[in-house]
Design a protein around this nucleic acid. Structure first.
Ligand SMILES: [Mn+2]
Ligand SMILES: [Mn+2]
Ligand SMILES: [Zn+2]
Ligand SMILES: [Zn+2]
Lengths: 132, 132
DNA sequence: CTTTCACCTTGACATTGTCTAAAATACTAA
DNA sequence: TTAGTATTTTAGACAATGTCAAGGTGAAAG
């Protein structure tokens, strides 16, 4: 992955130490973290970063399309470094959220929904991940 | 629909005025209300009902399977009088949430997800409802 | 050096949701 | 009826999520 500074520059966001700390964690994170998760981890590299700055940076990244945001978990929005279209599987035992590649599932019948103009959609699955 | 008292009795929940006010609103509501929506409306019929009782009653109804709960909107869980399996369409302009009958959509390919045991799933769509 | 400007921090605030202690209510049995 | 017990309700405390405004810091420009 490109380094945080280049990514920020490319989107016309000034690369400050606080923003770099947020970006370095959240854009390579595979765990669908909450804002508070990001805050905790960003603090390790930048101990003075504030909650407000974390929220501001996350919202900025989402606006710029560098970061996804999902409202599939109770209590807090989660952020998603994977900005390609994909589905989600939620392990109800552990709370872990897994990405399901877009082409693994096909949703048929959307054309029949005459009253609705669909901008985007995804399949949300709940269950348990099989231990291998 | 059966009356609130019978419904509560049938589930071994004592029908108190507070619970009746909650049930009468939430079980015939088609708008996917939040707990606070239910609180506001229940107060009209039972002006003394407290927030705690509304939450307790909603959680009881969900436990008993009389009410659905969905985490598809930011900020608050929503409740769903429709306990049949179905999908959801969210109008991003208005925030309104529409039920999509289960058999209108078909999700193919779940069998390929060997690592996951799926308990339930649904399709979540975002877009705009066409004005007729 | 002074002004300006973007950024950051702090803390206040609103909202959601849970929990507890005490009051109110309803059932039960003498 | 009356006393006692169990259930329910209420008010408020509390924690967590998220937004916002006020003021501080620091660099760049004049
Ligand atoms: Mn974490
Ligand atoms: Mn309402
Ligand atoms: Zn994802
Ligand atoms: Zn529904």
């Amino acid at each position: 992955m490109k380094d945080a500074i280049s990514i920020l520059r490319q989107c016309d966001i000034q690369p400050t130490p606080q923003r770099i700390a947020v970006v370095e964690y959240v854009l390579k994170c595979k765990t669908h973290p909450s804002a508070d998760d990001v805050f905790t981890h960003a603090r390790k590299n930048c101990p003075t970063v504030s909650r407000a700055t974390v929220y501001n940076t996350l919202n900025l990244l989402v606006e710029k399309g560098l970061l996804g945001m999902q409202t599939i978990r109770e209590g807090a929005v989660i952020f998603d470094a994977n900005v390609e279209k994909h589905h989600h599987f939620i392990d109800d035992d552990t709370g872990d959220i897994y990405d399901i590649p877009w082409d693994q599932l096909e949703v048929k019948g959307k054309g029949k929904l005459k009253d609705f103009e669909i901008f985007e959609f995804q399949v949300i699955m709940h269950g348990r991940r099989k231990k291998k």
